[in-house]
């Protein structure tokens, strides 16, 4: 475990700082637009961390799906929210202290547990692209789940259209 401070370590600390900062901002920012942009920072940071974990394909997917898809979707939703600039209207604080207390307690419990957890840590293999292996796995044991997920996505699209459609009498 003991080693020199390598370049990879530096990148990790940088990325994790960005990720944590983004999460903090997303969780605590009053302005909903700002929160979503902080979330973007977190997503990007996690994508970078995937790269650091030599999961290159995941990094790409994270960027495409989350940053490209989910986030844009969220921004649309935010734009529909009226009176964004008045934070107390658009993003009223509910149980702020309850939330912070729960988060803090959760963090305390998780942290104290995980710090002592004796993970069977193998030495990490060298950095190498893993996309090919992932592809083989996906068409191997992951094939049935893949089909199921395809079906799920189809259902989700139809369901979302049905739910979000302007039904008669809603206007």
């Amino acid at each position: 475990m003991n080693g020199d401070f390598t370049l990879a370590d530096g990148v990790f600390w940088l990325l994790s700082a960005a990720t944590a900062l983004g999460g903090l901002g997303a969780a605590l920012s009053r302005n909903i637009v700002r929160a979503v942009f902080f979330l973007l920072l977190t997503f990007a940071g996690v994508a970078g961390l995937y790269g650091l974990l030599s999961a290159d394909f995941l990094a790409a997917v994270q960027l495409m799906v989350y940053v490209g898809g989910v986030l844009v979707l969220m921004l649309f939703a935010v734009m529909l929210t009226s009176q964004i600039d008045q934070a107390h209207q658009s993003n009223p604080v509910g149980s702020r202290w309850l939330g912070i207390a729960c988060g803090a307690a959760m963090l305390a419990v998780l942290w104290t547990t995980l710090v002592r957890a004796p993970f069977l840590e193998e030495s990490a293999p060298a950095y190498a692209p893993t996309t090919a292996e992932l592809g083989h796995t996906l068409t191997g044991i992951g094939f049935l789940p893949l089909l199921a997920v395809g079906l799920l996505l189809c259902a989700v699209i139809v369901g979302a259209v049905v739910v979000a459609r302007r039904g008669p009498g809603t206007e």
Partner: peptide
Amino acid sequence: GRLPNYLAGLALGTIVLFALVR
């Protein structure tokens, strides 16, 4: 029927469970 309250219950339950195990 408010979502965050239920969510808080969920989280607190998890925390208590963890604490009990510890």
